[in-house]
Design a protein around this nucleic acid. Structure first.
Lengths: 260, 260
DNA sequence: ACCTGAACACCGTTCAAGT
DNA sequence: ACCTGAACACCGTTCAAGT
């Protein structure tokens, strides 16, 4: 809608010629397209992420896109890698590997939900890009500090990452729903499950209020915490220093350093 | 392709008239459309689940569909509820609430993956249907047996269900990829991450072989097991009978009955 | 009461043509 | 070297018309 070719009426001081309405005068490039895709999808939601819409946003024909990306899939993976880069930017490293994992996973969750249109398409994909390689190395290095075997380190790496990505994907899918559909689903615990016959669904009835009160982020953190605890339990069970066994209780992160 | 109107050449003994090629002569109905959607999507994959394709499969005009469902979303939720019913059919109840949760979650995972096209659309949705209400009641009843407070029962219900659904959705999204794209992504641990510079990505290099060897189902079970252990740990920490504290070690399921 | 079929407003993508 | 624009083969959905 904004800068469609042929009606630049609302744009003041339009220069003549072919490449007129291009935002800020930047030349079309892969990076400029990724920028526009991020900005457009955050501003207008999942429905706006089309090749045609991107073209009109950048003031070029829709098909100019194919000069810079093989197809839409390649663009979406590039955008995803940029989102991972943003995640890495806000991660806080800690001496405690548990705290570092919490920082990485919650940063990923929050930032993925700023871009649900992209997240819902890429949460089961591999970008292979620079940021993805960096976050893989960082998560593996963090889990390695717990002291598991290589096979268990790999298994729990995947457990953490798949939980983080799949729950982000699920929350993103909810965010992408049309508002009316989303409202219907979100009110289910009070509007559907809260009104069921107590004799047919007694346990549901007994928990409907508590279920309605939960936030998606609480659930996310509960699952991540369960996986972190599983790593700690495995580490304690296989630790070469039996003295470290009783680190179950909360201690100051100073004390944890000895384990890393 | 199969029973498209106008070329019933391959179908023998075709009756004349308007409602000719309708499969098995059954009248068009919501149930028949759900049947056809399940069968079609399992046989031909995600791309086949369109209103037009469903019409030609059933030997009717594509838009006849709108006589029985408000829109495609309503159909997809009805199909999803049928998939939940299939899951309930294979669940094995155990005296041990942990075993019952394992049975429910792994049944859901396996059956969801038989219908990835539907699962990838519905894994973040609420059907509100009969089967969904039954599985909600069953999972809540099972977790209740662990002896948590109502608030914690609700929290861990959501943790188990969200993990189960979101990981099913992620695996389904992978299954829906075009074969070439899927093969590229699945070979990433050997083709991309296995070939990185050892000096830039030392930890990744040290774990690439182990990462490539993991199956998605192993990861699924690891996450579910972590949540089950978290429930058991909370139950042990808040148990009214301190004698039950040492139920950590594996015991015969006979003994567990006392806790339920 | 139920089904048909033309039509609408979209998609991603290809390709010959322009500059 | 890069962009244009017509065209292709699709989508979900609406609606007046048929039986």
């Amino acid at each position: 809608m904004a800068a469609a070719r042929g009606k630049p009426a609302s744009t003041p001081a339009v220069r003549p010629g072919r490449i007129v309405a291009k935002g800020e005068g930047a030349a079309l490039s892969a990076d400029a397209i990724v920028d526009a895709a991020l900005e457009l999808t955050e501003r207008e939601g999942a429905g706006a992420l089309t090749v045609r819409r991107l073209g009109s946003e950048l003031g070029v024909d829709a098909t100019a896109f194919y000069r810079h990306f093989r197809d839409k899939d390649e663009l979406v993976l590039a955008v995803s890698d940029r989102i991972i880069a943003m995640t890495l930017d806000v991660v806080v490293e800690s001496d405690d590997w548990r705290e570092t994992l919490r920082s990485i996973t919650s940063a990923a969750y929050v930032i993925n939900l700023r871009y649900p249109a992209v997240t819902s398409i890429t949460f089961a994909r591999i970008t292979g890009g620079r940021a993805e390689r960096a976050i893989v190395e960082k998560i593996l290095a963090t889990i390695s500090r717990a002291g598991l075997s290589p096979a268990e380190t790999a298994l729990y790496y995947r457990a953490i990452v798949d939980a983080m990505l799949s729950l982000s994907g699920q929350a993103a899918a909810v965010a992408n729903l049309e508002p009316a559909v989303r409202a219907k689903d979100e009110s289910a615990w009070t509007q559907i499950y809260g009104l069921l016959s107590q004799s047919d669904y007694p346990i549901t009835g007994a928990h409907a209020k508590e279920l309605a009160a939960l936030s998606e982020q609480d659930v996310f953190e509960t699952i991540i915490e369960a996986v972190i605890e599983a790593i700690a339990a495995r580490a304690a069970a296989t630790s070469p220093q039996p003295a470290a066994r009783k680190s179950r209780a909360k201690q100051s992160s100073r004390r944890e350093e000895e384990l890393n």
